[in-house]
Design a protein around this nucleic acid. Structure first.
Length: 286
DNA sequence: GTCCAGGAAGGAT
DNA sequence: ATCCTTCATGGA
């Protein structure tokens, strides 16, 4: 199907795929990606304000519309951000415009960010892909031009909970293997009985940190932001820490403790890592 | 080869 | 409570 998102404005598939919040986007061409969410496969190509999607209408309205968070008004979130009169935040918002906080699967995010510690984004993607190939379900989907493509779903908690440390280590997760298995068991024992999306941030964040080995304050906030869409959750990683020290003289800025702190952090994270921010002075790098 | 990555655990102070 | 060391692996 073809979707006109002129009214939404805030959507840039390149920025979303490169924003470090989702690890199963695969670049297929210019403004053209595939992504796997739950048991579904989607190809998406953006040409200005038009989206070419490999799914049909029914699948869009039942799954992908929610996944891309099209129900949230990012105009309002950005305007509120601009009201802080903060130069760095304003620059981040402008540069990161088009990023959205995807509504991803809680369990997949939990495991993905347990893997993420002390790993580069390409290495995280590679480990997750190996886990999906080893433990996920093999499925067939459709490409944009109607061809059949194969993919693997992210494994269920049950299957991961029954994996062995030895087998899991073949996916390049190292010492995190036992964390992953324990987290899967935790999910089955506790989280599957809760309506986890109804639990407030202040309650769920400490539970994640205290109950799951391998989850500290940063990963817990990533899980809240990306896995539960708690937009106030503010993950402080090495890049955000650099921003705090370099831009704010080690004083936490006001916007990092606001209802949409997670969205602003995502803009700031994307901006701080960008070539635009890390400009190499012309003529001095030869 | 060598450096470091969207950190956290475990122990010492 | 706050510091210090160690952790397994791959991508650049």
């Amino acid at each position: 199907m073809i979707l006109d998102i002129k009214a939404i404005k805030h959507f840039d598939i390149n920025k979303i795929a490169d924003s470090g919040q989702a690890f199963r986007f695969k670049r297929l061409g210019d403004n053209y990606y595939s992504v796997i969410h739950s048991y579904r496969y989607l190809e998406i190509k953006q040409v200005d304000s038009r989206l070419y999607l490999s799914c049909n209408n029914e699948e869009y309205y039942s799954a992908w519309r929610n996944y891309f968070d099209f129900g949230t008004n990012y105009d309002a979130i950005q305007s509120l951000g601009n009201s802080f009169n903060d130069r760095f935040l304003d620059d981040s918002i402008e540069y990161g415009k088009g990023i959205r906080i995807l509504r991803q699967d809680f369990f997949e995010i939990l495991i993905s960010f347990i893997i993420s510690q002390r790993k580069s984004i390409p290495a995280i993607k590679s480990s997750i892909e190996k886990i999906c190939e080893k433990y996920g379900f093999f499925k067939l989907g459709k490409s944009l031009d109607g061809k059949t493509v194969s993919y693997y779903t992210f494994p269920t908690p049950r299957i991961l909970s029954e994996a062995t440390v030895e087998d899991l280590k073949e996916c390049g997760v190292g010492y995190r293997a036992e964390y992953i298995i324990a987290a899967a068991k935790w999910w089955i024992k506790y989280a599957s009985n809760w309506d986890i999306s109804e639990i407030p941030y202040e309650t769920i964040c400490p539970i994640l940190i205290n109950d799951i080995k391998g989850v500290g304050i940063k990963v817990a906030n990533c899980v809240c932001l990306f896995g539960l869409h708690q937009l106030k959750a503010a993950p402080v990683d090495v890049w955000i820490q650099k921003i705090i020290t370099e831009e704010y003289e080690n004083v936490i800025p006001e916007w990092m403790d606001s209802p949409y702190a997670g969205v602003y952090q995502q803009y700031a994270f994307y901006y701080r890592r960008s070539d635009e921010y890390n400009k190499i002075p012309q003529g001095e790098n030869l």
